[in-house]
Design a protein around this nucleic acid. Structure first.
Lengths: 142, 142
DNA sequence: GGTTATTCATTGCACTTGCAACAAAGTCAA
DNA sequence: TTGACTTTGTTGCAAGTGCAATGAATAACC
């Protein structure tokens, strides 16, 4: 048994790398908009999908439903989204961006694209297999 | 401007993948030992480095000092480590594994190695460039 | 149709976290 | 030595989190 080195432990390395990237993105862009990562995910999904329920987001954005629910409440309080009970199934809540929310995303999306471009540039030619590996992990049950 | 898809956003993908792996490891192995990820990191570093201060761990294990401090307190309460004031510089606290802590790690390390081996197998040939990419991110300031 | 199950979103609770503030200990220079 | 500054670890506080429990709405079954 070799002496265990945390620094070479793949799950640790992955966690640290993810935290760094996430934090860098948060610091550079979202902080000035007042959004947290959870809120950013909800907003980004709404921008892409239009009107969507909490459970829809839970399933597609890798967040607990309580987390989605609370992020949505904060966003609603800030006027970024609206929450409306779905008349066809009154258990569901339809979330959608307000004009203010859309305006915020209009600013944020270019920043996100810039950030991603920088990250890809940093990784260089490894980026493709890196991305493939992420897909593999995301698809797998583990 | 292309329509922004969160699912293709590299920071998001990285965060989701990391959370999946981390959670899988936690569920499968650490839960039964009662360790959290923070505590696992402290223990693993102590196993590798021997007697070490809080600030040492903070610098080497990517954790805030308050997080390290609290993890250490929990571990001490559980009898896994000891905390002793360093007589040469009484601001420093020397952390080290107890016999009980070492015994726990003797069980946990093989599990960690198994888990890592499974993860590497899952990734297949992409694993090398994946790991390289993680190194690049960890080294970069971002 | 009426009862039982299931689904959806929210909330209470205990816990963790990050940050700033803090006290104690050490360093340094005059 | 004294006094200002720095370093180290802990803690108070506000905020976020996961999980279980809840209430409301719908579906499923006899």
């Amino acid at each position: 048994m070799p002496p265990f080195a945390l620094n070479d432990f793949l799950p640790y390395r992955l966690a640290v790398a993810a935290a760094r990237v996430s934090r860098a993105f948060e610091r550079r862009y979202m902080a000035e908009t007042g959004l947290s990562v959870s809120e950013w995910r909800v907003m980004a999904h709404l921008l892409h999908e239009g009107e969507v329920s909490v459970r829809e987001i839970e399933a597609r954005v890798d967040m607990e439903k309580s987390k989605v629910s609370r992020a949505a409440s904060r966003l609603e309080a800030d006027g970024m989204i609206t929450k409306v009970v779905n008349p066809d199934d009154r258990r569901l809540v339809s979330l959608s961006l307000t004009d203010k929310g859309r305006a915020l995303m209009d600013k944020l999306i270019p920043m996100a694209n810039t950030f991603q471009a920088e990250l890809k540039a940093l990784l260089g030619p490894d980026v493709d297999q890196f991305d493939t590996a992420l897909s593999t992990i995301m698809k797998d049950k583990l």
